[in-house]
Design a binder for these strands. Structure first.
Lengths: 109, 109
DNA sequence: CGGAGTGTAAGATCGGCGTCGAACACTCGC
DNA sequence: GCGAGTGTTCGACGCCGATCTTACACTCCG
């Protein structure tokens, strides 16, 4: 058999090119998601797991927020063993919405 | 007394500089408001009245949306006689959130 | 195998926002 | 002054989204 590590269904991703502006704006308009994106931006790619973020919500809500970010083309997720690693889609998202990511990241440092 | 045309209380404006990113994003994340902003962008300053927009909502809701846009520093309003004229705060808003307005206006032409 | 860790899914709740209808305020023109 | 036109305010309603709790699935490790 494929000796790959995961039998889990890979999460459904949406490419930024297929995302409407409204969706992108709505995704970033939430305080929790904004924190996730900003914190994710400071980290190396594929280093942060879903539960490693300092947000004032339970893990279920956090999982939900990552699903929204995924659907907005903002993050990419990859399964590695029991953990699900994340990566901010900087270049792709910026190509689709030039300046938007810079804008939300530059705010408040 | 002051012989000015209006006894009406001038609407309270918020300068883009005093607006949080979240507020700006949330303001633009609504479909109706997005239409208002886009349509307003195509028009000359101080030419469009609140009720002259082709949006699928009643005038009460429309008035509400303009209040939100005002609070987000996106539009400026001025009373002229019985009508309330609008203007998109292009330069000021773009100075505060570089590229954001261009982004939402470039979409869909 | 069995337990610990991690993430998702389902169901329920709750608050907020968008909407409407009606009432009110103001301006203009007759 | 009176009516028409324009816009805001208020109360109520409905819906969507954010959250929690619980239960389940999967992986790693002892």
């Amino acid at each position: 058999m494929s000796s790959r590590t995961s039998h889990r269904s890979a999460p459904a991703h949406t490419h930024p090119d297929d995302v409407a502006v409204q969706t992108a704006l709505a995704a970033l308009a939430d305080p929790v998601r904004l924190r996730l994106v900003r914190e994710l931006a400071k980290a190396e790619d594929w280093t942060r797991t879903c539960g490693s973020f300092d947000v004032p919500v339970g893990k279920a809500a956090c999982s939900h927020h990552f699903a929204v970010l995924r659907a907005a083309g903002l993050v990419e997720q990859r399964d590695e063993g029991a953990r699900r690693l994340n990566r901010l889609r900087r270049a792709e998202f910026d190509a689709r919405f030039p300046g938007l990511l810079d804008l939300v990241l530059r705010e408040d440092g």
